Computed example of a mutant assay.
Amino acid sequence: MKTIKKSNICKNINSYQIDKTIVKTHKPGVGDVAIFEVVSIGSLNAIQDFEGRNSHIFEGDKVMLSFGNRYASNQFEGYIPETYLEEYDLIGKGGVVGKVVSMHYKLELKGPTKLKIVGYAANSQGRVINTIYHHKEAIKFDIKKNRNFKTILSVGSSMDSGKTTTAAYLCRGLKTSGCQVAYIKLTGTVFNKDKMLAYDCGADVVSDFSELGFPSTYLCPTDTIMDIYEGLLSDVTIANPDYVVIEIADGLYQQETQALLNHPLFTETIDHVILSCCDSLAVNTGIQLLSPIFDTRLFALAGLFTGSPLLVSEVKDQCTIPILTLPKLIAQDLVRNLLSKNVNIAV
């Protein structure tokens, strides 16, 4: 059995020593790395490891994780504790540790997986290792930078509204139409599933905030997220994309999402917007929120509601924005023609 199971967010931490002397005195910050022993298994019985695979964990296992905050309306709300705790919680499968303060009712029976800190991962100078920009340099956002691609923003009315699937299938539709396509996930909690779906759908290159060492973006200042944005755009330009599909996590009311949508330096970089929703009423609210910001750049509607012909009919009665089911998203040339607005497409 391997001595320590390294989580995905810690994949670039290769040289360290375990400092057990500061477990009660060090106040952890976002990205600080520590080794934990699994005390009891809750709703998360595995971590995504440094290779991106699902690694099951058991009581007594040692795991390397990173402190972070989490906002997930269908999962956990969790924060970095202010002081030492006898037990910590696994709040993100990609390797995020903190303390749960609320959870979706479906998780209440099992609760979070409980952990005991063994020690902090320290470098040769004795400083606690931090994942943020551990292996990459930060790049300041530059609004004047010339960008030779179009951007498509995938947003959702809420968590699990279908925006990731929309973004991934959008990548496939553009790719089958002959375009070079990149995908980035700008905000959220570390987990490889979303970007890997986009990659499997045909995106030429994918990246997300965790590639810059952020375990999550919850509670990050907007300027920090804008620098992450610049770093991710820099990452994917190696593919010389025609389009960059950008996903931001959770729903339109989530605070980092709201901050970005009200930040002119961000919205000015967006050429097109697609909105995913769970139901017809969410579509109406989403359009009301996004239209003043993006106007005609909101080019299509998608998401879970498109699986119901009745909900699609309700939406068609209320608005004229094209509705894209999954087959339409991947149809050759349909999305590209919609984006160019040169062809009238019946949807």
Rank of each mutant, 00 (worst) to 15 (best):
T3I: 01
T3L: 08
I4W: 03
K6R: 13
S7G: 07
C10W: 04
C10D: 10
C10A: 13
K11R: 15
K11G: 00
K11Y: 07
N12P: 01
Q17E: 14
I18G: 07
I18D: 06
I18S: 08
D19N: 13
K20G: 05
K20A: 07
I22F: 00
V23G: 08
T25E: 12
H26I: 03
P28C: 00
G29R: 10
G31M: 04
D32W: 00
V33M: 00
F36G: 10
E37F: 04
E37D: 06
I41W: 06
S43C: 05
E51H: 09
G52D: 01
N54E: 06
I57E: 06
F58T: 08
F58Q: 12
G60R: 00
L65Y: 04
L65R: 02
Q75I: 00
F76C: 03
E82N: 07
E87A: 02
Y88E: 07
Y88P: 02
D89F: 02
G92V: 01
V96R: 00
V97R: 08
V97P: 09
V100P: 03
V101Y: 13
S102C: 05
M103S: 12
M103K: 09
L107T: 09
E108L: 14
E108K: 15
P112T: 07
K114F: 08
K114N: 06
G119L: 07
Q125D: 13
Q125G: 05
I132S: 06
Y133L: 12
Y133N: 14
H134W: 02
I143V: 15
I143E: 13
I143G: 02
K144Q: 04
K145V: 02
F149D: 02
F149L: 07
K150I: 05
G156F: 07
S158H: 06
S158A: 15
T166Y: 04
L170K: 01
C171N: 03
R172P: 05
R172S: 15
K175S: 13
T176S: 12
G178S: 08
Q180N: 13
I184W: 06
I184A: 01
K185F: 11
T187Y: 05
V190H: 11
L197H: 13
A198N: 10
Y199L: 14
G213T: 11
Y218G: 11
Y218I: 10
P221C: 11
T222R: 08
T224A: 10
I225H: 03
V236T: 05
V236I: 12
T237R: 11
Y243L: 05
V244D: 02
I248D: 00
D250R: 01
L252F: 06
T257S: 09
Q258R: 14
L260M: 05
N262C: 03
N262K: 05
H263F: 03
P264A: 05
T267K: 04
T269C: 09
V273D: 06
C278K: 15
S280C: 09
A282P: 07
V283M: 02
I287F: 15
Q288N: 14
F294A: 01
T296S: 15
R297P: 09
F299Q: 13
A300K: 14
L301K: 10
L301H: 10
F305I: 10
F305R: 08
V312P: 11
S313Y: 15
E314N: 14
K316R: 15
L324T: 12
T325N: 12
P327S: 04
L329M: 13
I330S: 12
L334N: 10
N337M: 05
L339T: 02
V347H: 12
V347I: 08
